[in-house]
């Protein structure tokens, strides 16, 4: 599974990385973010690109596991 670590990055950087990762439409993809803006925006992009997200929170970090709808 593709995995992106977008922790420490401010928006729109995490969404740019996610867009690149989803460009060839993988079945699944994992992205780590560490602030609410990145979490919300990556969730919006994932939904727009046709992915559903499982959200796992670990301390201040959030891991989104995306899979094709």
């Amino acid at each position: 599974m593709k995995e992106i670590d977008a922790r420490g990055l401010s928006c729109p950087q995490p969404v740019i990385l996610l867009k690149q990762a989803l460009a060839d439409q993988p079945q699944t993809c994992k992205i780590w973010v560490d602030h609410p803006t990145a979490r919300e925006n990556t969730l919006r992009f994932a939904a727009h690109a046709g992915y559903k997200a499982d959200i796992l929170e670990q301390g201040g970090d959030v891991c989104l596991t995306l899979s094709k709808k």
Binding site: C11, T37, E40, T42, F45, A47
Partner: peptide, 12 residues
């Protein structure tokens, strides 16, 4: 663009 996650931190 909002639907694609281009929402600035200030909006949240």
């Amino acid at each position: 663009m909002a639907a694609m996650g281009m929402v600035p931190g200030g909006a949240y």
